[in-house]
Design a protein around this nucleic acid. Structure first.
Lengths: 138, 138
DNA sequence: ATTATACTCATACTAAAGTATGAATTTCAT
DNA sequence: ATGAAATTCATACTTTAGTATGAGTATAAT
């Protein structure tokens, strides 16, 4: 987001600089200022699209806004949600335990509670349900 | 895509029309044509971003075509792919066996082979990898 | 202070999942 | 027809996952 704004600002400055030069060449000769402006519009339209496409890969896909309301509704705690995300990443209970510095038994408890809250029979089903409810990122 | 081009074209025309009017007002009075152009650039930059965001939602998310080439590359058979999809739906081996009218042992074999081909340690990881490779639907 | 919630952990299970190996069938292209 | 690949299945294991129960700690709200 910050990068986008930075690029955008530099481009505006570059545009103004270029215009400063062209001012006495193109416009004073009246070489269709409409054409100049149209070109600028096209260029910036394309720039806007390209930048958005690049960032949308990490915005549209990864930040698939999570449904916090649903999480609360299901009574899923912060820790449980954290574990749920790790489960969805394909980690084992042991691996999650190591990452969160707790015992494997603790993770088992969290997962078991999650399955009950999500009304799932298995962790794979929990992942599917959680994604449908948008409580974990795609 | 066609819609984007259509909107884009209309906007260009609208811009030129607006310029035709402003020509004798803003520019002749020399009210900083740089400002006018900068505004146009900003507007089109935003338009480009917005249009791209709207279209990317129905291209990136909904029509997520499966990568058949990758499936072949990994040597995943039809039956294995079928099982993989069921696994991703959150079904147990027993449930998949019932749905496909084969024994649970057969499903275990398929899953085991899938894990090897996808280089995964667990079925949950296989799901994650398969989704990243776009060999199963979101 | 005390109740409620969240988080932690253990033990002892049961149930799935996954591996390894070997083998019988079927399918399909050469 | 024959060899290769795909599909099916079994048996015997090992390893994870998941359940049930009980309990200790910490924290925040009443």
């Amino acid at each position: 987001m910050k990068k986008t704004i930075f690029i955008f600002t530099s481009l505006i400055i570059a545009l103004l600089a270029l215009f400063q030069i062209s001012k006495y060449h193109l416009i004073s000769q009246d070489v269709s200022i409409q054409f100049v402006i149209a070109t600028i519009a096209v260029v910036f339209f394309i720039i806007g699209s390209v930048i958005n496409k690049k960032t949308s890969h990490s915005i549209t896909v990864s930040s698939q806004e999570i449904n916090q309301a649903k999480i609360n509704e299901l009574g899923i705690s912060n820790r449980e949600h954290e574990v749920l995300c790790k489960v969805a990443e394909g980690l084992s209970n042991k691996e999650i335990a190591h990452q969160l510095y707790v015992s494997e038994n603790t993770i088992k408890t969290h997962v078991s509670n999650l399955l009950a809250k999500l009304n799932a029979k298995r962790r794979t089903q929990a992942i599917q349900i959680a994604k449908k409810l948008k409580i974990i990122p795609l």
